[in-house]
Write a protein that binds this DNA or RNA. Structure first.
Lengths: 338, 338
DNA sequence: ATGATTGCATAAAACGTTTTACGACTCTAA
DNA sequence: TTAGAGTCGTAAAACGTTTTATGCAATCAT
């Protein structure tokens, strides 16, 4: 049997010579037991290696101390397709580690809307959903079921939904563009992703705003997040076909690496003729030659914020949001003009 | 409340005008109900959006349809440290997607041996543990609790433990070395990782065997898996200090990329003077110039094998093992001599 | 001496299922 | 008629907790 080693609350009670109520109270710090009895019961429980059965407890209490994580890129992962951004790949691990520190389990749920739904799915205390997009069906389903959830990134088209956290995208975009400006570039090309999430939308919006402020014409090249370095090269070739740019801002480190390779292959020097930067750091940005300036996102910080917000939501029924964390710009050789 | 929308088996029974037993039997295909009654009950259940409470069911049946995954690199991920091999990062996602297809949830458990243990941890039906090492404490704990588990990679020093799956490492090592040989290299340098897992051990063993067969002296450079491309460069410099090699075999794609950069920086041409290959593919191997020959591991295949083995173990108490999947060599420009 | 208060412990109900055992019919065969 | 065999359905126990309500002493105030 997977469940327990057979040692139940009854075993502890018998061994300690008390009722099962006493054991429950002693172990949970409730009721009106004498300190002496409490101590004795705890000792016996330890000795027997007793652990309260999670299901029995969950059934009685209505909550289980476990939360679900809907990881968006999992669909793509089904057949091991690489995805674009460092953050996606590590987020499960990060959330999990942080959740543990708060005494919560986390369960990965690939897609809540496709059946068969995993047995535990609707018994989670709450959910974190990653990068929700417009009309997100998972968010809708959770709402219908009355299961609390928070999101990594806002839900586009749902300004009323406040329980989300993310990096401060407009701030990051602004800082990156200003960084280009400082380095001497006035016209910037944007290589954007294709997902309709807040990340892409916010950056594009800030980029357009900045362009109109500068009086320059926006040049946006869309490229699927999933296409990786090869997609970056392709985008780079498209850009070159329209003229050598002063600066290129890519949403992912992989795209940036690819664009850089395409430019260099065409004899364009980086950072001599063209500056390059990425809106999300990844090992590709770090290990390219020259190394590519990038924004280092803060998934650990966001994970903390999300968990905290979810815990508030579970405990009190509401929570403050949204919560923004500040990412940090990592200037590297790709934007350094000596 | 997170738990359900309040609709229980009793509600369904009342609405359908039958007993709760009838509902349970109808929905689980048991008992001796007429087809007509079954259909009616199912219709009502659908209409009400009834979902059996996972805890109540788990409590009664003793199993829950959920398995735990102990992901080894999670400790390192706590503060977002990059790790060496593609496979590690994606394995959670892959297992999760595959598990879903089999109707199982998967719960990430960072470290079973460190308290507080997540509430659900000991209620899982079984576990998959990743890359166990010698004297693995997690394996020991699960054994003590009588919880079935399978491992991705064998447990070094435990030949009696058979419930594991992995790529066929010795075969991969042999094929890679033969590939070098075909391309004209007789002396091969090995850049090994530092973890004491089966992966490193098996490769080293096969490498040594091959060297003695060829009558050449093994040259092994150890480099931590966590050091990434920078570590690869460092290893490359160490190698060069000992002389320009005919061929370099790296355990990770990142190391290979770094070694290649170090060689190129020193004016050594790849593949002209030195061949390079990696024992595990990663985007770094794919996107380096020249692209680096690598072994494409098969984590999806292993995940399937592991889940199947675990299901056998849960159902019958034993399972056949170990199970080896064949990885595929991806020849690329870094070993191509025209 | 009596009634009220306090301190400690417990009995029993409840959570929502699944399962076992049994009951009430209807039909067939003698 | 009645025994035996099927057919369809249900009552009740059980899973392992937590919680509510209650009980029993001993102590206290009158």
């Amino acid at each position: 049997m997977a469940r327990g080693q057979g040692v139940t609350i009854r075993d502890v009670a018998r061994r300690a010579g008390v009722s099962i109520t006493a054991v429950s109270h002693a172990l949970n710090g409730k009721g009106t037991l004498s300190e002496e009895t409490r101590a004795r019961v705890k000792a016996v429980a330890d000795e027997l290696g007793y652990q309260a059965d999670a299901f029995a407890r969950g059934m009685r209490q209505g909550s289980i101390g476990a939360i679900g994580l809907v990881l968006r890129s999992l669909d793509a992962l089904g057949d091991y397709t690489p995805v674009g951004v460092d953050v996606f790949e590590r987020f499960a691990g990060i959330v999990s580690a942080r959740a543990l520190a708060k005494g919560l389990s986390i369960t990965l749920v690939p897609d809540l809307t496709r059946s068969p739904v995993p047995p535990l799915a609707f018994s989670m205390d709450g959910y974190i959903i990653m990068s929700p997009h417009e009309e997100d069906p998972v968010a809708a389903l959770l709402e219908r079921r009355g299961i609390p959830y928070v999101a990594y990134g806002n839900i586009p088209g749902r300004p009323d939904f406040i329980h989300w956290a993310s990096e401060d995208d407009p701030y990051a975009a602004h800082q990156l563009l200003t960084h280009f400006q400082m380095a001497g570039a006035r016209e910037v090309v944007l290589v954007s992703g294709t997902d309709t999430n807040a990340w892409n939308k916010d950056f594009q919006a800030e980029y357009r705003r900045w362009c109109s402020e500068q009086g320059t014409t926006p040049r946006i090249y869309e490229q699927s997040e999933r296409s990786g370095v090869d997609g970056g090269r392709e985008a780079g070739e498209r850009i070159l076909a329209d003229g050598v740019p002063e600066a290129v801002l890519c949403m992912t480190g992989r795209h940036a690496a690819g664009v850089q390779q395409a430019l260099q292959a065409a004899g364009v020097s980086v950072p001599g003729q063209t500056l390059i930067a990425a809106a999300s750091d990844s090992e590709h940005a770090r290990s390219s030659r020259p190394a590519i300036t990038a924004f280092e996102l803060n998934p650990a910080g966001c994970a903390d914020q999300l968990l905290e917000m979810l815990q508030d939501l579970l405990a009190t029924g509401n929570a403050q949001g949204p919560r923004l964390t500040k990412a940090r710009l990592r200037p590297r050789a790709s934007t350094r003009r000596d």
